[in-house]
């Protein structure tokens, strides 16, 4: 799929940067002409993915790098890749179960939100090397799809 526009940035694994990351992705994605509700869903998804990097991949260490790549593709499709270089996930299938959480005070809804609000989610991980979460969503409406 052809890339129409692209943006890549890195942030330190600080909680302060979560709102920055979701605002950036939301602003960039708005070029696709999505509704405010859709942008809110995208921002939630980014918030969950970046929070996962900080809490789980880096176990709250604040001097690590998180890479975020946003691509605007054909057919009003948004692709977001969020990568960390942290501890990785041993058993991806169990982590993807709804309400799975390694910590009692968390709801385990992060990946559930990502799966629900995006069309496609892929999680690639290598223990000790890091994790890459690739998310895709098309904002083509049904009417427009018929003419596309």
């Amino acid at each position: 799929m052809n890339v129409r526009n692209y943006c890549k940035f890195e942030i330190l694994s600080l909680p302060e940067n979560i709102s920055f990351a979701r605002a950036c992705v939301g602003a960039f994605a708005s070029q696709l002409g999505c509704t405010i509700d859709e942008i809110e869903e995208v921002k939630l998804v980014v918030s969950e993915a970046v929070s996962n990097c900080i809490i789980h991949a880096y176990e709250n260490r604040s001097n690590e790098i998180i890479t975020i790549v946003i691509s605007l593709l054909e057919n009003r499709t948004l692709e977001i890749i969020i990568e960390d270089y942290g501890k990785g996930i041993e058993d991806i299938d169990s982590v993807l179960q709804p309400t799975y959480s390694s910590e009692p005070n968390r709801m385990g809804l992060g990946f559930t939100f990502m799966k629900s609000f995006m069309d496609d989610m892929e999680v690639l991980s290598k223990p000790g090397e890091g994790t890459s979460v690739q998310l895709k969503r098309s904002f083509l409406t049904k009417d427009k799809e018929a003419y596309a």
Binding site: E40, S47, E48, S51, R106, M107, L109, G110, F113
Partner: peptide, 13 residues
Amino acid sequence: SFIDSSGLGVILG
């Protein structure tokens, strides 16, 4: 104006 699963965790707790 915004809530994610960290916020939901506070409410649940």
